[in-house]
């Protein structure tokens, strides 16, 4: 059996593919940024001595870390509106889910980075008379950040891969557009190969970058 490869027809769908790339990148960048903001708040709450806030945050983090993203997406889109009475568009539901999912991992990375800074650094900053925010901004975070960047980049890579799950809510990401093209062209082999190659082209440099950072940190 000889399959006749033909990628030429895909050109006529370049508009659809472009939209898919935009959605995939847009959702990744958007939810990485929002996830970092929420993750920072989670980390700071868990590092403070606020018992109740810490307990609530820990609970939320565990729920998001210990259930599949696909289940979370479906739950937020189909189940949450029944509880709250608020209908969510697929994009909004997807954005909320990926933000919280990312935040639960980013938060732990940020917290881990902060507590990895030697206690003597806190002592030294405090002994000079630094306020809490000055100590964080001038002493702790600059040191913690170096250690946080490689795992944060790795988590961002996972975040981009996870955007492919948005297709189940009919959000027009790269994979969803591939499904559209396949159903119109009946050529899944070329279409999905191209989709995979596009993901690879985006992610390969990013993972190399994370590797390089890790290598540089380790000596």
């Amino acid at each position: 059996m000889q399959y006749q490869w033909d990628f030429g027809f895909l050109l006529q769908y370049k508009g659809l593919i472009g939209v898919g790339i935009l959605y995939t990148l847009g959702f990744t960048i958007g939810t990485v940024v929002s996830g970092l903001v929420v993750g920072c708040m989670i980390a700071l709450a868990r590092l403070s001595n606020m018992r109740i806030a810490t307990a609530v945050m820990t609970g939320i983090i565990e729920i998001f870390r210990c259930t599949p993203v696909l289940v979370q997406l479906v739950w937020v889109y189909y189940a949450l509106p029944i509880l709250t009475g608020i209908e969510l568009s697929p994009s909004v539901a997807a954005f909320i889910t990926l933000t919280l999912y990312g935040a639960s991992f980013f938060g732990e990375i940020i917290r881990g980075g902060i507590i990895s800074v030697d206690m003597g650094q806190w002592d030294a900053g405090r002994a000079l008379g630094m306020r809490r925010h000055q100590l964080m901004g001038q002493v702790i975070l600059p040191q913690a950040f170096r250690r946080m960047v490689p795992p944060l980049v790795n988590q961002a890579v996972l975040q981009l891969k996870n955007t492919s799950l948005l297709s189940v809510l009919a959000v027009p990401d790269l994979l969803y557009q591939g499904q559209l093209i396949t159903s119109a062209s009946y050529r899944p082999l070329e279409t999905y190969t191209m989709i995979a190659v596009i993901y690879f082209i985006i992610l390969f440099p990013l993972t190399r970058f994370a590797h390089r950072l890790e290598a540089r940190m380790s000596h």
Partner: peptide, 20 residues
């Protein structure tokens, strides 16, 4: 606390210089 500490200098066994 910060104002109180600012008037007192402290030197530690492990130096605790800011490495960055």
């Amino acid at each position: 606390l910060a104002a109180f500490r600012a008037r007192t200098g402290m030197v530690f066994q492990n130096f605790n210089l800011f490495p960055h």
